[in-house]
C-alpha cells in the first residue's frame, strides 16, 4: 500500500517519524525531570572525588572543608570534620557483660546522638535484643520492647558491628568503598559507596544501615565533632556502619555507647596492650563471640559473670 504512493509516502513518513522522535525525546526529558532537581544538590567536586585512600593531604583538606560548607548549607550547623588516622600499635576490641546489661538502650540513644543519625527513624548502630533466660535462640528475641527493664526472666544482648577480623561485608563490596583499617575498624567511604547494599546482605549481624533518604536532623542536635570516616552526616543512598566512634577512640577517648552505659556492662580497649581492660576480660572471663561458626572472627566479645 505504501509502495504505491512511495514518493509522497516516504516524505510524509519521515515527517511523522521526526515528529514522533521529537515527542519521544520531550516525553523522556519530562520523565527524567526529577533527576535535574537532585543533580543540583550534588556538586561536581563530589562527583569526581577520588577514593579516600587516593586523596593526598591537600585534596583531603579540600574535601573536608567542602563537606563542612555543605553541612552548613544543608543543615545550618557549624561543624568540624577531621580525617583521623589509626593509632600505631592499636587494635580495638570490645566486650560486653550480659550479666549486668539491663537492656535500657541508653547505648543506642548515645549512638543515635553521637553519630548524627536520622532522627525520625530512631536510627542507631546498636540493636538490643531481649532474650529468654536459658536460651540464646535469637528467633525469640524482641527488639522493640517498651516495658520497664530488666524484665523478669529476660536478659539483654546489644548487637552492633562486631568489627570482624574477617569481615564478609568488606569482601563483597564491588568498589572497595568499605575496608578494614590498621586498628581493625571497618569503615565506609560515604563518598565512594555506590549503594548496592551487597554488604548489608553479607553482614551476619545486621550492623549496616542504608540511607534510604537524606538524613533528617535539626541544626541544634548535630554533634559538631565529626570525622570523615565516622559520624559526619551521611549522604542519601549510601551505606553506613558503627566505627567504634573512631572520631573519639582514635584520640584516646571512650566510645559514646560505653560512656552512656549505666551499669558498666561495656569494656573497650586496645587488644595489643596486655595491661588493657579488654585483655583482662579476655583472659579472666569466659567470653564468646556471636555466630562464631561463620568464621568472621569478631572483635566484639560477650561474657557472663560467674
Amino acid at each position: 500500500m505504501e509502495a504505491e504512493n512511495k514518493p509522497t509516502g516516504i516524505s510524509r513518513r519521515t515527517v511523522v517519524k521526526g515528529a514522533a522522535a521529537t515527542l519521544g525525546a520531550a516525553a523522556f526529558a519530562r520523565a527524567m525531570a526529577p533527576i535535574m532537581n537532585w543533580s543540583e544538590t550534588t556538586s561536581l567536586d563530589e562527583f569526581v572525588q577520588k577514593h579516600y585512600r587516593e586523596l593526598n593531604s591537600q585534596e583531603m583538606n579540600d574535601v573536608l572543608r567542602r563537606l563542612e560548607r555543605e553541612t552548613k548549607e544543608n543543615y545550618g550547623a557549624d561543624v568540624t570534620i577531621n580525617d583521623i588516622k589509626p593509632m600505631q600499635g592499636v587494635v580495638f576490641g570490645y566486650a560486653l557483660n550480659l550479666s549486668i546489661c539491663i537492656g535500657c538502650r541508653k547505648c543506642a540513644e548515645a549512638c543515635h546522638k553521637e553519630n548524627n543519625h536520622d532522627r525520625p527513624s530512631h536510627n542507631a548502630y546498636i540493636r538490643v535484643l531481649e532474650l529468654d533466660q536459658g536460651s540464646m535462640n535469637l528467633e525469640n528475641a524482641n527488639t522493640t520492647y517498651t516495658h520497664p527493664v530488666p524484665a523478669p526472666g529476660k536478659y539483654y544482648m546489644p548487637v552492633q558491628c562486631q568489627q570482624c577480623e574477617n569481615p564478609p561485608c568488606v569482601n563483597v563490596c564491588p568498589v572497595e568503598a568499605t575496608w578494614q583499617e590498621a586498628d581493625g575498624i571497618t569503615v565506609v567511604d560515604y563518598n565512594w559507596c555506590i549503594g548496592c547494599r551487597y554488604c548489608e546482605a553479607a553482614c551476619p549481624y545486621h550492623a549496616r544501615r542504608f540511607n534510604w533518604r537524606k538524613p533528617e536532623i535539626s541544626a541544634t542536635e548535630i554533634n559538631p565533632n565529626q570525622a570523615y570516616l565516622s559520624n559526619r552526616i551521611r549522604p542519601q543512598g549510601v551505606v553506613e556502619k558503627c566505627t567504634f566512634c573512631l572520631h573519639r577512640t582514635r584520640v584516646g577517648r571512650l566510645p559514646a555507647c560505653l560512656e552512656a552505659c549505666p551499669t558498666g556492662a561495656r569494656v573497650f580497649g586496645n587488644l595489643l596492650d596486655p595491661n588493657s581492660e579488654i585483655r583482662w576480660v579476655l583472659e579472666n572471663k569466659r567470653v564468646f563471640v556471636l555466630k562464631e561458626e561463620l568464621g568472621t572472627k569478631p572483635r566484639f566479645f560477650y561474657f557472663f559473670d560467674v
Partner: peptide, 17 residues
Amino acid sequence: DLGRPDRFWHMIPGLGR
C-alpha cells in the same frame, strides 16, 4: 537498585576501584 547510580564509574576498572 543502586542508591548512587551517579557513582557507577567507581566500578570501571582503571578509573574506579
